[in-house]
Simulated assay, not measured.
Amino acid sequence: MPSLLLLNGPNLNLLGTRQTDVYGTTTLAEIEERSVAHAKTLGATLTAVQSNHEGVLIDHIHEARGTHDGLILNAGAYSHTSIALMDAVASVSLPLVELHLSNIHARETFRHESHVARVAIGQICGFGPHGYILAIDALVEHLRGR
């Protein structure tokens, strides 16, 4: 049974009330509940963590080695700024799917580049909360070698 770690970065705890025109009205709790349930239908387990602190996210990435089989990361703005997150992912040698609710490539220019993308097996963006389901599907398929 594949074990997945879902990490959500800064400001995602405010989903449902934060910039609803960009991020929608679904809360992070709702996304996590749906994600855990969907993973279960695929025979996987999913643990969800959110932090506004870069170091806490890095600690969870380090702790994932030997505990989880793959990572899903919505690093929010850290995707565009954090070489430390990129290095942490590279250091643990676990497959990672990068995820964003909005289409980062259709937004401000500074959002077009992601350091995390350099160490991800793929990137899903622009599908809102459904992107989490797509990320789970993609990671489980990757882990199963399909």
Rank of each mutant, 00 (worst) to 15 (best):
H62S: 06
H62N: 04
H62D: 08
E63L: 09
A64I: 00
G66L: 07
G66A: 09
T67D: 12
T67Q: 13
T67E: 12
H68F: 12
G70E: 05
I72G: 03
I72S: 02
N74G: 00
A75M: 07
A77M: 01
A77W: 11
A77P: 11
Y78Q: 00
H80F: 01
H80S: 01
H80D: 02
T81Q: 00
S82F: 05
S82A: 03
L85T: 03
L85C: 02
M86P: 05
M86I: 06
D87G: 12
D87T: 13
V89M: 03
V89L: 04
S91M: 10
V92Q: 07
L94M: 05
P95S: 02
V97Y: 07
V97E: 06
V97N: 01
L99A: 05
H100A: 00
H105W: 03
E108D: 14
F110I: 01
R111Y: 08
S114L: 02
H115L: 14
V116P: 02
V116S: 04
A117V: 00
R118H: 14
R118L: 15
R118W: 14
A120G: 08
I121H: 10
G122S: 15
Q123N: 14
I124P: 00
C125A: 15
G126N: 01
G126R: 01
G126T: 00
F127Q: 09
F127Y: 13
P129A: 15
P129S: 12
G131Q: 01
Y132H: 13
L134G: 12
A135P: 01
I136E: 05
D137K: 10
D137I: 07
A138C: 12
L139R: 10
L139F: 10
E141L: 15
